[in-house]
Amino acid sequence: MFASTASTGNTELPPMNGHRPSRKPRLIVLIRHGESESNRDKSINQYTPNHMIPLTTTGWAQARATGAQLLKILNVDDESIVDRLVEKYHVSGGTLPIHGYARLNHAKDTNVVFYTSPYKRTRQTLKGILDVFDEYNALNSGVQLPHSQCYEPEVPRQAGVWGVAHPKECRRERHYIEYRVKDDPRIREQDFGNFQETHSMKELMQKRSTYGHFFFRFKEGESAADVYDRVASFQETLYRHFDKQERKPRDVVVLVTHGIYSRVFLMKWFRWTYEEFESFSNIPNGSMVVMELDETIDRYVLRTILPKWI
């Protein structure tokens, strides 16, 4: 059982020389992958490497629903198209309530950067999301991408540009949402060890509940405190991208990642104590967490109401 609570916080980036850095994205969004075969049946971990576990049919449906929900919070040309996509791909459950999202910047979102964990279930989740983005672009801008230009999780790239359309192909006065995809192993899930025997993992999970989720380290694996170090490194990379003026604009940055990683990311970003981290439960499969930039204070504000343990 868990209850929900609202939470806000600040970034670690202070204003530089009294001026706001000008390249920060309007939104940073964390997305947990859709339901995987392991979420449904833990015995798969006994013979399938964790990074090779795929989505279930439900997980694919959640991924497409998340794609529509992500479009719902973007600044787009035609919200009626988005509403149709939300209705088309709706699934029950999985979404978290958003509180106080104000669209503080109303400029159209035309450049979105996706970072994805290299695990199969996160890449497949991203595929479902981007299929919906391609559908929106086709309906709004009149551009039907060839298959070779659509994102494919089976064709991994360390850094890839997908979904690019020539401006002349787009309908006049219509904004095309261009996206880029970057694989980053630092945003993978907490390592629980290699092949996992179901009975022993149940015992370890019970011990973790008593010991504490943040400091408990799995044999041959990691603790959430170890994940924190990866998160710190990744966030430093994001900061460097925000500060480089010559880089292409990033209207929105999206991380397609995992449950524990998302919680640790928020802990580091908003400077939560480990006790605050322990109070939150994992976000549901296929749900997203929204951070909006408030330019008046040069800080990101958490707009999603997170689930908490009772």
Rank of each mutant, 00 (worst) to 15 (best):
Q62K: 00
Y89Q: 03
G221Y: 03
T58Y: 09
F195A: 11
T296Q: 13
H90T: 05
E292H: 02
L70S: 00
Q245L: 11
N50C: 07
S43L: 05
I129F: 03
L55C: 07
H90Q: 11
A232W: 01
L266M: 13
E278G: 10
K24G: 13
G286W: 10
S281F: 06
A6N: 09
F280Q: 05
N17P: 01
R103D: 10
V253F: 04
Q196L: 15
H175T: 12
T125F: 05
A65E: 00
E12N: 13
Y176V: 02
P153S: 07
Y228M: 11
R217K: 15
G93M: 00
D77V: 07
V155C: 09
E275F: 06
T56A: 04
A165E: 01
D134C: 12
K127D: 03
N285R: 05
R180K: 14
Q144N: 10
Y211K: 09
D243L: 15
P284D: 06
L27Q: 08
E79T: 14
P54C: 06
P15T: 09
A165T: 04
Y115D: 14
R247N: 15
L74K: 00
T5K: 10
T95P: 04
R230S: 02
A225N: 11
H106K: 15
D298F: 04
T237Y: 08
G259S: 12
G142N: 11
T125N: 03
T296V: 05
G34I: 04
E169L: 10
H147F: 04
I53L: 09
I44N: 02
Y101G: 07
N285W: 02
I283T: 15
G212Q: 03
R157M: 14
R171L: 12
D83R: 08
R180C: 07
D229E: 13
D83L: 08
R40P: 00
K182N: 12
F242I: 03
H147A: 14
E275V: 03
L13R: 10
Y211R: 06
A165M: 01
T122N: 04
D226V: 04
W269A: 02
Y151V: 00
L266K: 09
R26K: 15
K308P: 02
R64Y: 02
K24R: 15
N282H: 10
T58P: 00
P25S: 07
R26E: 10
H106R: 14
F218V: 02
R26T: 13
A65G: 07
N10E: 11
Q158M: 12
E246C: 07
F192D: 01
T110G: 01
G163Y: 05
V132E: 06
R26G: 06
V264N: 07
Y119Q: 01
Y176A: 01
D191Q: 12
K219W: 01
S43W: 00
R303Q: 12
G142Q: 08
I177G: 04
E276V: 08
T210R: 11
E276W: 04
I310D: 14
H90R: 11
T95N: 12
H199N: 09
L30D: 01
E154A: 12
R64Q: 15
R299G: 10
H99M: 06
I283F: 07
I283A: 12
E278C: 08
K120Y: 08
L204R: 15
G259L: 11
